[in-house]
């Protein structure tokens, strides 16, 4: 039974919040119960940002994730802060482009993704979040990439439709890396 409890974290501007919203949106489109809870507070520009996403086959109780099934760390402070919150056998995704250390935990599954490098190869540094999201989807099998694409289409609207192919490529590259790392 699906009950994904994910924490996504990074610094402001890395698309952490949108990545979480897209996942929740995709979950909704697949008929799952979902919630998206952002951290909010007096943050400065470039400060930390994180959100908790729950995608479940059963109604969501508390939207707060206290024992994560997956943690996506886009930068070093996020890894330091949220690695301990991960459940045993949980999934830890590390953006190795920006994080200079290995995982401390050895009771979890670790995926190192050079997200920024891949995003740059694809021609837009902005899609680093999509690379990691693609890797997460492949490793967790929680939702389909197609659902995320459908969600993206709705979020972008007609004016930004031209951005879809790059995002799709990023999701697929992320998924491919996750597959090969297995």
């Amino acid at each position: 039974m699906l009950n994904e409890q994910i924490i996504m974290a990074g610094f402001g501007g890395q698309g952490v919040m949108s990545m979480g919203q897209l996942l929740a949106y995709a979950g909704m489109l697949e008929g799952k119960d979902v919630s998206w809870l952002p951290s909010y507070g007096p943050e400065m520009r470039g400060g930390t940002a994180n959100c908790s996403v729950i995608v479940s086959d059963t109604p969501v109780g508390s939207p707060i994730v206290t024992e994560a099934t997956a943690v996506i760390a886009m930068n070093r402070p996020s890894l330091d802060k949220f690695e301990p919150v991960l459940k045993t056998d949980g999934l830890l995704l590390i953006n190795s482009s920006l994080i200079d250390r290995k995982a401390n935990r050895n009771d979890v599954k670790v995926l190192e993704i050079p997200a920024n490098e891949i995003a740059n190869e694809l021609g837009s540094g902005k899609v680093a979040n999509m690379v990691v999201l693609g890797a997460y989807l492949e490793a967790s099998k929680a939702l389909k990439i197609d659902s995320v694409m459908e969600a993206l289409k709705k979020v972008f609207g007609p004016s930004k439709e031209h951005l879809l192919p790059t995002n799709k490529a990023a999701l697929e590259r992320g998924a491919e890396i996750a597959k090969n790392l297995k």
């Binding site: 919203q21 929740a24 909704m28 119960d33 979902v34 919630s35 998206w36 809870l37 952002p38 909010y40 969501v60 939207p63 707060i64």
Partner: peptide, 10 residues
């Protein structure tokens, strides 16, 4: 509360 105000759900 702030949590209900800030969170997203269907």
């Amino acid at each position: 509360d702030g949590m209900l105000g800030q969170m997203m759900e269907p």
